[in-house]
Amino acid sequence: MRFLKMNGAGNAFAIFDAREKGRLTLAEDQAAAIAKATRADQVIAMEPSGEADVFMRIWNADGGEVGACGNAARCVAWFLMNETGHSRLTIATTGGNLRAERAGEHAITIDMGPPKLDWTEIPLEERMDTRGIDLKIGPIDNPVLQLPGAVNMGNPHVVFFVEDAEKAPAETVGRMIERHPLFPEGVNVGFAEVQAPDRIRLRVWERGAGLTKACGTGACAALVAAHRRRMCERKASVIVDGGELLIDWRGNGHVFMTGPVELEGEGSLPL
């Protein structure tokens, strides 16, 4: 079966077109093997949808299926817009519908919807103020990291605020926290350095994928978490390892993400 190799700000995807097939059914070990063979952070299937232009199914590199991926949504939207000539479309996911709009020749804006902020929506195992949950890394009396913000943007995120994102222990802490008992569904772990009211440097350890060059939902979560702590404005550039994403938490409550798309090539795998 043929696939597209694409990336959004460096976040790499193997995208399969299963619209005629109806559904691409993959076991966890199959999805993980495909991700490894294609060097993709996520495996994506485009499937038919009765309520949207397409349904997007997502597997992380470990083979686990997840509900949302903003960078993948931009790639799928760009491909379909080039195919149909449309400049707007809707992508259905298990995490909700995403509306996409062309923002340039190789740029797409995605309406990621409103963030979920209640502790039951993250979800957490116990009631906490999600502006800064009771989670500490290191000695209790002198933690290295503490009180991350928690946001669900179609999948769960915690965001630690750090002085220097480049020096943050993203890999060790991310690996430690992604399956912490506090998070029954696991969690993506962000390390955000607010450099200015309109600029955030971010690194993300993705649940089931590890450190990635970009995480669209993570960038949205970082902006929301930072604004809730009055650390930045409602609109800011989020600098990730693979490029730059513009995140705008608008007055209607929805978070919009604009970023680049690149088609690297095509390939084929026996499925």
Rank of each mutant, 00 (worst) to 15 (best):
E28Q: 14
D29G: 01
D29K: 13
Q30N: 07
A33E: 05
A33H: 08
A33P: 04
I34K: 06
I34A: 12
I34V: 11
A35H: 00
A35D: 01
A37W: 05
T38I: 14
T38F: 08
R39C: 10
V43I: 15
I44M: 15
I44N: 06
E47F: 09
S49I: 14
G50C: 05
E51A: 15
A52G: 06
D53R: 07
V54F: 06
M56T: 12
M56C: 14
R57A: 15
R57T: 08
I58L: 12
W59K: 07
W59T: 00
G63A: 15
G63Y: 08
G64A: 14
V66T: 13
V66D: 05
G67R: 14
G67I: 08
G67L: 13
G67F: 07
C69G: 05
C69E: 03
G70N: 02
A73S: 13
A73T: 05
A73F: 01
A73V: 02
V76Q: 03
V76D: 00
W78R: 02
F79T: 05
F79P: 00
M81A: 08
M81K: 05
M81H: 03
N82G: 13
E83F: 04
T84L: 12
T84S: 15
S87T: 11
S87Y: 05
S87P: 02
R88M: 10
L89Y: 03
L89E: 03
T90Q: 13
T90A: 14
I91L: 14
I91R: 01
A92M: 09
A92G: 11
A92E: 14
A92P: 03
T93L: 06
T94C: 09
G96M: 09
N97V: 15
N97I: 15
L98T: 06
L98H: 01
R99L: 04
A100N: 03
A100F: 07
A100E: 00
E101R: 12
R102L: 14
G104R: 08
E105W: 00
E105M: 06
E105Q: 04
E105H: 04
E105I: 11
H106I: 04
A107R: 12
A107G: 01
T109A: 11
I110L: 13
D111Y: 05
D111K: 11
G113L: 11
P114M: 15
P114T: 06
P114C: 13
K116I: 05
L117V: 15
L117T: 11
L117H: 04
D118S: 12
T120I: 05
E121M: 01
E121L: 04
P123G: 10
E125F: 01
E125K: 13
E126C: 07
R127C: 11
D129F: 01
D129N: 08
D129R: 01
G132K: 08
G132Y: 08
I133L: 12
L135F: 05
I137L: 06
P139D: 13
P139H: 14
P139L: 15
P143V: 13
V144Q: 08
Q146D: 02
L147C: 04
L147E: 07
L147N: 12
P148Y: 00
V151Q: 02
N155M: 03
N155V: 10
P156S: 08
V158C: 13
V159G: 07
F161K: 04
V162C: 04
V162L: 05
E163D: 15
E163A: 15
D164P: 00
E166D: 09
K167N: 10
A168T: 14
A170V: 15
A170K: 09
E171R: 13
